[in-house]
Amino acid sequence: MTTPALRLRPGAGRQLHGGPVTFVVLAVAAIVSLFPLYWTVVAASTSNNRITRTPPPLVPGANLAHNLKEAYTQVHMGTALVNTFFVAGSVALATVLFATLAGFAFAKLRFKGRSLLLMLVIGTMMVPPQLGVVPLFMLMGDLGWSNQLQAVVLPTLVSAFGVFFMRQYLAEALPTELIEAARVDGAHSLRIFWHVVLPVARPAMAVLGMLTFVQSWNDLFWPMIVLNGDNPTVQVALSELGQGYVPDRSVIMAGALLGTLPLLLVFVVLGRQIVGGIMQGAVKG
């Protein structure tokens, strides 16, 4: 099995040392990237009146706990966090599972209409999410699912990108001989999937799962339409905070912080692996 690290080697030999200019430019880029997040913390930890002071506050204040609590209670942030973990978790799991299955079939199994179907999968990436919302909303209403989590989970259980991603990965990373050998031993394709494909696919599955989780966590358009403020996901709760009637800007920022914190923590802990994963996905093919 080829690891992503090995895959990246070819260019690595060329790496030149960067000078101080490179360092400074990158430092500026890092500051610009991180400052809004830092300022979220500053704003979330101060009071409404201090945010609007000129010059604006640049160091955190003492109200963080109070503001977090306010944000938490005002827009059902507790429900939102639990809901979003549930939604993003089940969407990520299902997407990875179905994408790996389909990716395996597209990459390594022979069947009639395979390339046509694969083209179809890629074609569906073109369908904008906005397109189906009107009937989808009416459908959910008819099913009695509006404002319920399955209305958010079900439509996103699969992803064309995921299928394609796994197909590309398995086409390269899964040696055909391995499957042949298992076939000769009389193994069924499902068995092969379980014992041969899954172990090979694991790194790509992790990347896909992570990307899907982040995307689902941050999804706004459809959840905002089908869910209501009393049973929201994190993003719906945040947009309620942002659009709605709330007492305090610092509370809004505290809400933004609450909604982002879980993902940021993942980034802090797994940052390097995530960077590797995204680059791996980009290099594939």
């Binding site: 306010e70 938490y72 429900t79 639990v82 699912w145 989590l149 009393d230 049973n231």
Partner: peptide, 24 residues
């Protein structure tokens, strides 16, 4: 105006898991 929302917290906790099940 003037929301304090003190008791909402309890309501959130009470509906938290029910919300997860989806019944709002």
């Amino acid at each position: 105006p003037g929301r304090t929302a003190a008791l909402l917290c309890a309501a959130v906790l009470a509906t938290g898991l029910a919300g997860c099940g989806g019944d709002g």
